[in-house]
């Protein structure tokens, strides 16, 4: 898990990540970029093993800086985006989750606190998944 937040690192390790820090301890076969920062694209590509694949999973990404072909793409590194999901993905994942329920760390908010939940998300204050309790 690559994250700057100490709380996120601790949570990642608690949930079973093999490591958590500023950079991967060894070259990666695959990587997923959830952070909306284009600056991380070359960083993540460079940290791939030869033949590795980086999937950018967010709906929004800030500008990606220029890539250096040799450092970031050569040796058959692949850069891909992820756009939403199909219903087949949803059914497949939810079937897996029913069979082997994932450990989900939630941070509950009252319905009336939706603004605060967004603000906390914006400032990195949510360690886990923010959820509104509604009915």
């Amino acid at each position: 898990m690559v994250t700057r937040s100490p709380a996120a690192r601790a949570l990642a390790l608690e949930l079973g990540a093999a490591s958590a820090g500023d950079r991967p301890p060894e070259p990666l076969d695959s990587a997923i970029l959830f952070a909306p920062s284009g600056d991380l694209v070359p960083v993540a590509l460079e940290a791939l093993e030869r033949g590795g694949t980086l999937a950018v999973a967010g709906i929004h990404l800030t500008d990606v800086p220029p890539l250096d072909y040799e450092r970031h793409l050569f040796q058959e590194r692949t850069l891909r985006s992820v756009t939403a999901n199909t219903r087949a993905d949803g059914r497949a994942y939810l079937a897996l989750a029913a069979e082997r329920p994932p450990v989900v760390k939630t941070v509950p908010y009252a319905f009336e606190e939706a603004d605060r939940a967004l603000a906390d998300l914006a400032t990195g204050q949510v360690s886990g998944a923010a959820v509104l309790r509604i009915g």
């Binding site: 898990m1 690559v2 994250t3 937040s5 709380a7 996120a8 690192r9 949570l11 990642a12 990540a17 958590a20 991967p24 060894e26 070259p27 990666l28 076969d29 695959s30 990587a31 997923i32 970029l33 959830f34 952070a35 909306p36 920062s37 991380l40 960083v43 993540a44 940290a47 093993e49 694949t53 980086l54 999937a55 999973a57 967010g58 692949t78 891909r80 992820v82 939403a84 999901n85 199909t86 993905d89 949803g90 497949a92 994942y93 939810l94 897996l96 998300l121 914006a122 990195g124 949510v126 360690s127």
Partner: peptide, 25 residues
């Protein structure tokens, strides 16, 4: 669900090493 699709899209080989960037904002 989208994490699952991302996992499919990143072609993780059997026994491979996966990195996840951005676990918190």
């Amino acid at each position: 669900i989208v994490g699952y699709r991302a996992l499919l899209r990143c072609d993780l080989p059997e026994g491979g090493r996966l990195g996840v960037y951005g676990f918190a904002r």
